[in-house]
Design a protein around this nucleic acid. Structure first.
Lengths: 350, 350
DNA sequence: CAAAAAATTGGAACCGTTCCCATCAAAAAA
DNA sequence: TTTTTTGATGGGAACGGTTCCAATTTTTTG
């Protein structure tokens, strides 16, 4: 089967020179006479020569391509991290291939194998909520493919990663709720499998403790990040004998789904119940009332992760993280106060 | 340089058989004795053999991978189309590589070349708002790589595509505004380069004509889809001697940005100005008031495009669309009426 | 102007896999 | 038992590029 793509051999034949020379001319090797180079370049362009990355990667053992794996991309968080990654990587001459897992562990494993089978040079990852087994990640490491994690980092793996201080950010968010006079603060936490869940919950607990508010286990529920469950759990909170006067939600979609339940029940936000989310998703400013939330520097997270990966890639001797401590970078967050915790009139006076 | 990946030659050497036999065992060729196959499979799994897709694609001239190119993915529209595409393609045993253009023509060209250099078997595309030159698309076709377009389809190219009836949907949306008694209906249109812009505007014009509302050129502006411009143009509309009492926006982000301008000016939605968007982005239900909009079956669009591409891929003889008419599939839209056009009390009575 | 040095080019190996063809062994048929 | 058919395996070319080394040409130098 003859392919329709032009090859360097086609060019070589037409010019009656060897393919080595054509290759040299095309890659900008210095040892090519000017007229030869010109002839090759002209013919290549007129024949619309398109180099075969498969052949190239195959023969050079490096593809100049990296992969990025995200658990989902319906919120704006991951897309905007990806934009940051592409930014840095394209400037560095790398191609970026995006894989999306739909929060499925199975997809994650198969996408990882896909990326490895395409011999990507490195991978930036945030794992799914289902991921409890990390063998597919260590496999990549054993193959010499550097990994950089962000946001969701496996906590028993020593890998380079970019995160925010989830603990501190949660602590501040809860302190904000306390500052506006709330005492019965509920927390809708995420799945146990995510570090973020544990850190943010600890921040919540410690903020309560600092302000001498006793911890009430009835007000903390972990859930699987599905919209249906939010509705059930939120209804449960509101039906308690003494319902909460505030909610700290693991993320913005959770907070927004919770707001709907509150509104459907005819309660007022923030008067009856104040709500705080996490990540400052684009939708946080759109909902009514505007959602108070912890902003993450998403594009920066992407850029930083990309730079970290570039470090790994250009290290002549691969860093061995079974011996050496892997680098972590923590980026700052910022509490964005909106109407879901402070009524509009007060906000304006600020 | 020795790669850390196991190859079929490593396996062959260890078992003292030829690489042909190993290859046959791994690909499930029938002519392999059972004990041999078993030995190969076991060793492959214990050595964590991972086939080299570069070598495979290189030798077979087919990669079992398709690309999808989208102009942006910060709204939910394109991500959810992608999910539909992945759905069908994964079931059919194909890998999907996602490329995101950031609405940049330059990125589009370079991503197209990237996909071609990786010899993908086919590509699903929605072009950027900047794209006016389609050479990179015809290049793919000349290389025998089938294309399927969706949403944004170059109108002077004969290519398979999946769309909605933009004209009809716009017509209905505007009729809805007329039905609720609006007479001065403004239209914020998109860039001239997109078919959607032209079709939706035509729908707008024809709806006015049908209901004997004279066309007022002052009330129609085309713009480049940037948030800053919406603000300027919307302010301009509101500052007219007789400002519009309704707005039909090219898409939901436009409508939502326009709503902010209206609210900032202290006007009421829908009483002073009713607003309709397009696509039913996830945020349309979140904004306050809820945005009336035209829902598109996004996941279905993705699934349909994927199925169309599969048709192209399995055609033994490639369809030549320089001769033959390319198929088009039009999927249904649905007008979703929310509070931005009908006040809550009336909505409830319906 | 011949010899040495430098620049340019060609040839061949290599990368990992598939696949066609040849070979050989085993099983079936004569 | 011999021949034919079938099944299992090995050998090697092909895919498109890079790269090292050798060969050739050109330039420089003594």
């Amino acid at each position: 089967m003859k392919s329709k793509y032009t090859t360097i051999i086609d060019i070589a034949r037409q010019l009656n020179i060897s393919k080595s020379t054509v290759s040299r001319a095309l890659t900008g090797h210095p040892n090519v006479k000017e007229p030869t180079r010109k002839a090759v370049l002209e013919l290549a362009s007129s024949m619309e020569y398109q180099r075969n990355s498969l052949a190239l990667g195959f023969s050079k053992h490096t593809t100049n391509t990296i992969g990025i794996m995200v658990p989902e991309f319906m919120s704006t968080y991951f897309p905007s991290v990806i934009v940051g990654v592409q930014d840095v990587m394209q400037a560095a001459g790398y191609n970026v291939v995006i894989c999306q897992q739909n929060e499925s562990y199975e997809s994650e494993v198969s996408n990882m194998k896909l990326l490895l089978s395409y011999r990507v040079d490195g991978i930036i990852v945030s794992h799914t909520k289902e991921t409890r087994n990390f063998d597919h990640f260590t496999l990549a490491q054993r193959r010499g493919v550097p990994l950089v994690f962000f946001n969701r980092v496996p906590d028993d793996m020593n890998v380079p990663n970019v995160v925010v201080n989830d603990y501190e950010a949660a602590f501040q968010a809860v302190e904000h709720l306390i500052a506006i006079g709330r005492k019965r603060i509920a927390h809708l936490a995420g799945p146990e499998s995510l570090v973020n869940t544990r850190l943010r919950r600890q921040g919540y607990l410690d903020a309560l403790k600092k302000h001498d508010i006793p911890y009430n286990p009835d007000l903390v529920l972990s859930y699987d990040l599905t919209t249906e469950k939010v509705k059930i759990y939120m209804k449960h909170f509101l039906d308690l004998a003494t319902p909460p006067d505030a909610l700290f939600a693991i993320n913005d979609p959770t907070a927004i789904a919770a707001m709907e339940v509150v509104k459907a029940k005819g309660l007022r936000i923030p008067e009856d119940i104040a709500i705080v989310g996490f990540s400052n998703d684009f939708s946080a400013q759109l909902v009514y009332p505007g959602l108070t939330t912890v902003a993450q520097p998403t594009a920066d997270i992407g850029r930083t992760a990309a730079e970290m990966l570039l470090q790994e890639l250009k290290a002549k001797v691969k860093n061995d993280y079974t011996i050496k401590k892997a680098p972590t970078i923590q980026l700052p967050t910022k509490l964005i106060v909106r109407e879901s915790t402070v009524s509009p009139s007060k906000l304006r006076n600020k």
